[in-house]
Simulated scan of single mutants.
Amino acid sequence: MTAAHGGSKSEAAYRHLRQRIVDRALPPGERLVLEQIARELDMSVVPVREAVRRLEAEGYVQYQRNVGAQVTSIDPDQYLHSMQTLALLEGYATATGAALIGESELDSARRINRELKRKAEQGDARAYTELNRDFHRTLCAASPNTHLLAVLEREWSRLDLIRRSSFALVPARYAESFAEHEALLRLVETRSPEAVVEQFAREHTLRTAHAAIASLQAEPEGKP
């Protein structure tokens, strides 16, 4: 097998496993048996192992002693702390950019939110999360604080899986989130006070976090 061939197989295994994790076909806590995955993908264990290591580095997979590789579980405390941090960052970035954002950016945010509504009706957690990030990125991008925006990009990327999982846990948040986006757009369009915009944007993110935590705590013991 050539290096390029091996690399392409590792990439194929990575994309396959990542998609299954994102779609919750491989739920949190699911053990990954490398030999079985290799047979399913008709390849050797080596590229599968490389793919799993890459997924581990990105937070999708974790290794447990005496268990091996398994899909990362959502830790309620860690999730809440991460979302609280994101809420603060998004809230401040949205507020500091509200007075500077242009009409073309607002039009983009409106279009994204309309598409979010369609994805909500389809129950597509993966597409919804990506569009949700695009919506907030559009509003936050007007902030003059470039360091803050760089930190936000890292947080959005790091929390990609867990946020997608959170929307999958609480489908009722789809419609609620769309309505809150509409309200946030109105606050920005009407040049509401910065403190008002910041508080609303922060509470919007926290509502999703609290709903997901409640859903996790309500799940029967042993259910992923």
Rank of each mutant, 00 (worst) to 15 (best):
M1Y: 07
G6C: 07
E11V: 07
E11G: 01
E11C: 01
A13N: 02
Y14S: 01
R15H: 01
R15M: 00
L17S: 06
Q19P: 00
R20E: 05
V22P: 00
V22A: 13
V22G: 01
P27R: 14
P27T: 10
R31K: 13
L34Q: 12
E35A: 15
E35V: 11
I37P: 02
R39P: 00
R39N: 06
E40L: 08
V45M: 03
V48F: 02
A51Q: 04
V52E: 03
R53W: 03
G59H: 08
Y60C: 05
V61K: 03
Q64E: 15
R65K: 09
R65V: 09
V67T: 05
V67M: 00
V67L: 02
A69M: 01
V71N: 06
V71S: 06
I74F: 02
D75Q: 04
D77S: 14
L86S: 12
E90G: 04
L100A: 12
E105S: 15
L106R: 12
S108Y: 05
A109Q: 09
R111I: 03
N113Q: 13
R118Q: 15
A127R: 01
Y128W: 15
Y128E: 05
E130Q: 14
L131N: 06
D134Q: 14
D134T: 03
F135M: 10
R137D: 10
R137P: 00
R137F: 02
A141N: 13
A142M: 10
S143V: 03
N145W: 12
H147Y: 09
H147W: 07
E155H: 11
L161F: 06
I162A: 07
I162Y: 04
S165W: 08
A168W: 00
R173F: 11
Y174T: 10
E176T: 14
S177K: 00
H181I: 13
R191E: 11
S192T: 10
A195L: 09
E198N: 04
Q199P: 00
E203W: 03
E203D: 15
H204T: 07
L206W: 08
A209V: 06
A211Q: 10
A212R: 03
A214I: 05
A214Y: 02
E219D: 02
E221H: 12
